[in-house]
Amino acid sequence: MRVFPVYAPKLIVKHARIFLTGVIWVKDLGRLEFEKGRFLLPRKSLPKVKQAILELNELIEAQN
Rank of each mutant, 00 (worst) to 15 (best):
R2N: 09
R2H: 15
V3N: 12
V3C: 15
V3S: 08
F4R: 00
F4T: 01
F4W: 02
P5W: 15
P5S: 10
P5F: 15
P5D: 15
P5Q: 15
V6C: 14
V6D: 05
V6Q: 06
Y7M: 03
Y7T: 01
Y7G: 01
A8Q: 09
A8M: 14
A8G: 03
P9V: 04
P9I: 04
P9K: 04
K10N: 12
K10A: 13
K10R: 09
K10W: 12
L11D: 11
L11N: 05
L11F: 05
I12G: 00
I12P: 00
I12H: 01
K14Q: 14
K14F: 09
K14T: 10
K14D: 13
H15N: 02
H15S: 03
H15Q: 03
H15M: 04
H15A: 04
A16E: 00
A16M: 05
A16R: 00
R17V: 09
R17E: 09
I18W: 13
I18G: 06
F19S: 11
F19C: 10
F19V: 14
F19W: 15
F19D: 05
L20M: 12
L20Y: 12
L20V: 08
T21W: 09
T21R: 13
T21Q: 13
G22S: 03
G22C: 05
G22F: 03
G22H: 02
V23C: 11
V23I: 12
I24Q: 00
I24R: 00
W25L: 10
W25I: 05
W25G: 03
V26C: 04
V26I: 08
K27T: 15
D28I: 05
D28H: 15
L29R: 03
G30E: 02
R31F: 08
R31E: 14
R31K: 14
L32Y: 02
L32Q: 00
L32C: 02
F34L: 05
F34H: 03
E35W: 12
E35N: 12
E35H: 13
K36T: 15
K36Y: 09
G37Q: 06
G37W: 02
G37K: 04
G37I: 05
G37S: 07
G37C: 09
R38C: 07
R38F: 11
R38I: 07
F39E: 03
F39D: 02
F39N: 02
L41R: 10
L41K: 11
L41S: 08
L41Y: 10
P42V: 06
P42M: 08
R43D: 05
R43S: 06
K44T: 08
K44E: 06
S45K: 09
S45P: 09
L46D: 06
L46C: 12
L46Y: 13
P47H: 12
P47Y: 09
P47E: 05
P47V: 13
P47M: 13
P47C: 09
P47N: 12
P47T: 12
P47G: 10
K48Y: 07
K48A: 07
K48W: 10
V49T: 06
V49G: 02
V49S: 04
V49E: 04
K50P: 03
K50N: 06
Q51I: 09
Q51E: 08
A52R: 09
A52F: 04
I53L: 06
I53V: 10
L54M: 10
L54A: 11
E55V: 07
E55I: 06
E55N: 07
N57M: 03
N57A: 02
E58G: 12
E58I: 10
E58K: 12
E58N: 10
L59Q: 06
L59E: 09
I60H: 04
I60V: 08
I60D: 02
I60Q: 05
E61Q: 10
A62L: 12
A62N: 10
A62S: 11
A62R: 12
A62W: 11
A62E: 13
Q63A: 13
Q63C: 10
N64S: 09
N64I: 11
N64L: 11
N64A: 11
